[in-house]
């Protein structure tokens, strides 16, 4: 059993295939909550959950405000909301302005998760076309959490991963397969 209590993954719409691969590899009884903050097309609300659910053995949930964060579930930030983690392992949602042209903004999810989970959080940044997530990953590192970025050579668009590597001294640069192996080893 690992020391970590939660995993948070950020990426943009282009990382959908990687996310699907990761999600598909996790067993039904995976012992940690996995939170996904992905840039999505603003006005397409449904479809994403359904598409991920087909591949996933863990339940995929778009959380409501104040839902408790539970192990063995995959949470997807709802379209058109920022997704925060509150002390006491609960979600909070917000319709504040877009940040980094994004809502959900990966930075905000990571800031709040880092504040809540501190050194018990694993933060992962995948392929993406803007720098959202870089400062968020730095906050994970600064709080003592573990930071991973997808290998930029493997990314369709490496802006997000490179910005993250510039922002902080990330712990691991992993291929998708290595990310999966790492996550499975936490179980």
């Amino acid at each position: 059993m690992s020391n970590y209590k939660a995993i948070m993954i950020g990426g943009s719409a282009g990382s959908f295939q990687v996310v699907t691969k990761i999600v598909a590899s996790l067993p039904k009884d995976y012992p940690l909550p996995v939170m996904l903050c992905l840039h999505r097309l603003k006005h397409v609300r449904s479809g994403f959950v359904e598409a991920l659910s087909i591949k996933s053995q863990m339940p995929i949930i778009e959380p409501d405000d104040k839902d408790p964060i539970k192990s063995g579930r995959i949470y997807l930030a709802p379209a058109n909301y920022h997704m925060y983690v509150e002390l006491g392992n609960k979600f909070a949602l917000s319709t504040e302005d877009v940040v980094n042209h994004s809502r959900p903004a990966i930075d905000l999810s990571f800031f709040t998760a880092a504040y809540n989970y501190k050194n018990k959080l694993v933060g992962i940044i995948l392929s993406g076309a803007n720098k959202d997530g870089a400062l968020g990953l730095k906050s994970v590192k600064d709080a003592g959490g573990l930071t991973i970025v997808q290998d930029p050579n493997e990314c369709q668009v490496p802006t997000m991963t490179l910005a993250s590597m510039n922002a902080t001294n990330v712990d691991h640069v992993f291929s998708t397969q290595k990310i999966i192996n790492f996550l499975l080893n936490l179980a």
């Binding site: 925060y84 509150e86 002390l87 909070a92 917000s94 504040e96 905000l108």
Partner: peptide, 9 residues
Amino acid sequence: YSERSFKRR
């Protein structure tokens, strides 16, 4: 008010 959003504001 809910802690998280408020802190950010």
